[in-house]
Write a protein that binds this DNA or RNA. Structure first.
Lengths: 361, 361
DNA sequence: GTTCAGCACTCGATAGAGTGGAGTGCCAGC
DNA sequence: GCTGGCACTCCACTCTATCGAGTGCTGAAC
């Protein structure tokens, strides 16, 4: 398993946008490389020297461009599918291109409007809004889009309730400040009647209300009823299990159908789609990329082999300054990075505001 | 929109397995047709006359088979991609084949064991079990699998609770007998404090507990508090919206990555995948096919153009004799029908039993 | 010492010709 | 009515030729 463990940040292979550690390519080479990437993103065809003589920052003859391209190839930024074909960017080439973008750049007006319209119309439960947001992102970028819901850890508890389901099981229903309702089954040690359950429930509720799932007391004062106390203890244990762990993060994936046309090889399509079906893998992948301080992971940078021909754009969503949830975009390495970054930024920010408004009491 | 409205049952174009309305093909023709379908399902290659001379029920020379094939083609059961190629079944051919299967047939032992192992290990919330069931079905059949959760209508209400979220909104949290927790936002007409909310909540709870979402009273006796009464009325309205409507049916789709290899044309793959992303379309499609009394819809039989090159296997899941939830399998028209039907039946029955056990108090 | 026009060269993509073979339809004979 | 035989069809494949987009290199100009 190549997905890195949390916290294993490696500064040396985590390129940033800071100008300091940018590999030195003189202005013309950089312009040529960026022109090739831009052209290739648009056409998906190998780019010949002739095509970019008029690109901004270039304006030299194709012969000169050729010699620069040969040099860029030696340095590992470009490859040729075969002799006498144009050049294609390598992952390193894309990396340079992405690092060269100064800031995420603006989103084009049409898409900006689309985002505005979407969030103006958005309503209803948080889950369906996040689900729809993944669809919006896919529409905007033509990538598969992922939205990880804010973790529950930081959310205050609004309500805890115990509902008897059968003689030996009850349901713990927790309402959190952001409107998310969590539930878990509680196996009762003894037959417990509804009155005891209700008592235990309100005892727990009284002591945890307002706290977050990570600030739970280890135990509560006895209620005086022995069987209720057992239920209280078990309920507390269940509550503490509700926080934390990538396994509990809710994931919404939209637009995975767009992967069908993104790769030539059917097998690649199949394997990428099957990865998108694995919630846990996707969540830990996003988490990992984010932890390494990247906003874009190209090719094998995320270290996850099956996605070697993909690039991943990751954007944290912050609500009132707190990091809450994540946005991800998955496409072929030749995806439109400026557009994807811009869309992710705008949607992320707007979503963050939206969540902040709805969470405010 | 070609998806039929609920209830628009058309008996005349809903072929059944009953022997009465089977189009007359003499035994040999039927054997030849079924042999061709079987062969084509296995190889995805046009089937020549030579390949099926040894099939059971045939045993005539290839020349005779050829003349029968020509006849079957005239009658619309087969086509040729081009002259001098073998034959491919038409949708009508598949339909005959499916109608010829007497009963769903047994599932092979390995798969049967896989189902048993799965349900022995299955635990946890109903939603995650259904989600995993869709993955199981996909594994068993190499199709995309759909599981529609049982509708809430018939479920008894275990608990209703009102939780204040902000000054003007509250969350209605309903726990149903099968362990499903539904929620909806309630917009309050006036600022309402938590005590009033709680009072209104328990008033509603007391009067609806045990009833189903479809058996709600139109109004309740006044509580004596005017603002509480308003909340009670609004809560009742919200509860009644929770039942019914395909829009509320929860859908789990698994194994859609398998569609990548199912069709030659990338565009077909893309459009099929994009349909699988549209929950409402899928649910109403399944509902519609079921309402027409079909368990298999081949090609355009379901009337939904974009899935013309697909076949759909539908199986109702019954819990204690009540129809509850649906299983669906989507594959290319050349899917393995016997296997798909057998898997759907076994999984459907086992799932039904499982749900019955967990729902019993 | 860059830059660039010119030139020979490479090699995939495309088209056309030829061939093999899997398949057909038809027919005469049993 | 079934079947072996036969002529025919046409896709799939290979081989060849051609085209052209692209390259690398070189020598002259600035």
């Amino acid at each position: 398993m190549a997905v890195k463990k949390k916290g294993e940040t490696r500064a040396e292979d985590a390129p940033r946008r800071s100008s300091g550690d940018m590999p030195d390519l003189d202005g013309r080479k950089a312009a040529i490389l960026n022109a090739i990437v831009t052209e290739y993103i648009g056409t998906a065809q190998p780019v010949g020297s002739q095509h970019i003589v008029d690109a901004p920052g270039v304006h030299v003859s194709s012969a000169t461009v050729r010699s620069e391209m040969a040099s860029l190839e030696r340095e590992g930024y470009l490859t040729q599918p075969h002799t006498s074909a144009g050049r294609i960017p390598t992952d390193k080439g894309y990396r340079f291109f992405v690092d060269s973008l100064e800031g995420p750049g603006p989103l084009d007006p049409a898409r900006r409007q689309q985002v505005r319209t979407f969030f103006d119309a958005a309503h209803g439960e948080i889950e369906s809004m996040l689900e729809q947001t993944s669809g919006l992102l896919a529409d905007l970028t033509d990538c598969a889009a992922m939205v990880v819901a804010p973790p529950h850890d930081a959310q205050g508890i609004r309500s805890v309730q115990l509902v008897g389901m059968s003689a030996r099981t009850a349901l713990v229903v927790v309402v959190l400040a952001d409107g998310v309702v969590e539930k878990a089954t509680l196996d009762l040690r003894d037959d417990t009647d509804d009155a005891v359950l209700a008592a235990a429930g309100s005892h727990v509720a009284a002591h945890v209300q307002g706290r977050t799932l990570t600030e739970l007391p280890a135990e509560l004062a006895p209620t005086g009823d022995r069987s209720a106390d057992a239920v209280v203890a078990d309920t507390l244990a269940i509550l503490s299990q509700m926080s934390g762990g990538e396994a509990r993060d809710q994931l919404f994936v939209g637009g995975s159908s767009r992967m069908a046309a993104a790769f030539d090889a059917v097998e690649t399509v199949r394997s990428v789609l099957s990865i998108l079906e694995q919630q846990l893998v996707v969540v830990s992948l996003l988490r990992d990329v984010l932890d390494r301080g990247l906003s874009v992971a190209i090719g094998t940078e995320h270290g996850y082999e099956p996605l070697a021909s993909c690039a991943l754009v990751v954007m944290p969503v912050s609500v009132d300054g707190e990091e809450a949830g994540t946005i991800g975009l998955l496409g072929p390495t030749r995806m439109n990075y400026p557009q994807a970054l811009a869309a992710a930024r705008v949607v992320g920010e707007t979503l963050g505001q939206r969540l902040a408004e709805s969470g405010r009491r």
